[in-house]
Design a protein around this nucleic acid. Structure first.
Lengths: 193, 193
DNA sequence: TCAAGTTCACAGCGTTCA
DNA sequence: TGAACGCTGTGAACTTGA
């Protein structure tokens, strides 16, 4: 621009020095934090005065209700505040990043965990598909489906799938029970199986 | 100004050491407490003397009337004293927080985990059963099974169950991938999906 | 780099009790 | 009465993810 000066950029809410766009409006750090905090608390604010308090740098703390209203008037958008779920996910990932940085190599405990998973898999998952032939009606009847037995009712197919599903779920449960991670610390310790 | 020293900050009412702004004026702890108590009692005070008593640290207790007057002259504002209504609300919240903490203490981490699970569920599990009708053959054909179309081959049933199983497994995988616990820190970082 | 969230010391209310 | 304390809101400085 023609002016030699940097653009001053004042907060659209209180006129303090703005630090950028926050929730879709040019604001200062104070109004940015105020907006997030106040919206997240979601308690309705009521102005104790006429509802038209001055909101400037010196007086912005005096009436939160009018400050919030001016935030909204300035165009700040509530739905640009990240939801609790997104933040929870981000924090969970952070924890994992930290853990990953802490140990780049497979530790002794981690190798042990791999052994546990491997063992559980071979015990319950590895042979799973081999046992499908045991269910009613035998699966091999349908492998050579060119000469289907004409009297097998549709229900027996249902039975077969029910058996397969039941068995798979059982195996998955057995597999899972072999993993110590699935007996979490915050679980109900009184409950048995 | 005498720039060498830290600002001493004297009470605007009695000259004692000020501890900050209280009710919109720079005062000591004594005048702060006096102002709140006196205004809350709301009994009109009358100076037994000429109404122009000295108010300093040594003599401030002698004439409450003149002390209160000097408080007001110093700019202390009555309406910055929190109303009984507001205090009742605050105390109620305190009691509630205490009770909540004492009884069932869902920690911040646990609430975050609930958010993650809830989000993953609504994204991948919530609508799962609604989509079964999209698979071949349409499920509604079998809901009114009293007049089955005679030409539907048994294989279409197989197709239908295969579709359902495929879809369910896919959804379960998607659901699981949304849980950061299933992207463990010791995982291979080079591997993509 | 920008714009989200996070951190943390501080300000200013009320409360307590010697 | 007032020094010490607890609680909540504030905002400058910072970290982080796209």
């Amino acid at each position: 621009m023609a002016s030699g000066e940097d653009e001053p950029r004042n907060c659209a809410v209180c006129g303090d020095r703005a630090t950028g766009y926050h929730f879709h409006a040019l604001t200062c750090e104070g109004c940015k934090g105020f907006f997030r905090r106040t919206v997240n608390k979601s308690t309705s604010l009521i102005c104790p005065f006429a509802g038209s308090c001055k909101v400037n740098k010196a007086q912005r703390r005096h009436c939160p209700a009018c400050r919030l209203q001016k935030c909204l008037d300035a165009g700040m958008k509530k739905d640009m505040i990240l939801s609790a779920e997104v933040l929870a996910l981000r924090r969970a990932r952070q924890v994992q990043r930290r853990a990953q940085q802490a140990s780049l190599q497979l530790s002794k405990e981690q190798k042990a965990l791999v052994q546990i998973l491997l063992g559980a898999h071979t015990r319950h998952m590895g042979t799973m598909f081999d046992q499908f032939v045991q269910f009613r009606p035998p699966a091999h009847l349908f492998i050579h489906h060119q000469h289907l037995p004409p009297l097998v009712p549709e229900l027996s197919l249902l039975m077969h799938f029910a058996d397969i599903n039941t068995f798979m779920i059982q195996q998955i449960i057995k597999f899972t029970k072999d993993l110590p991670l699935f007996r979490p610390a915050w679980g109900n310790p009184e409950e048995g199986d």
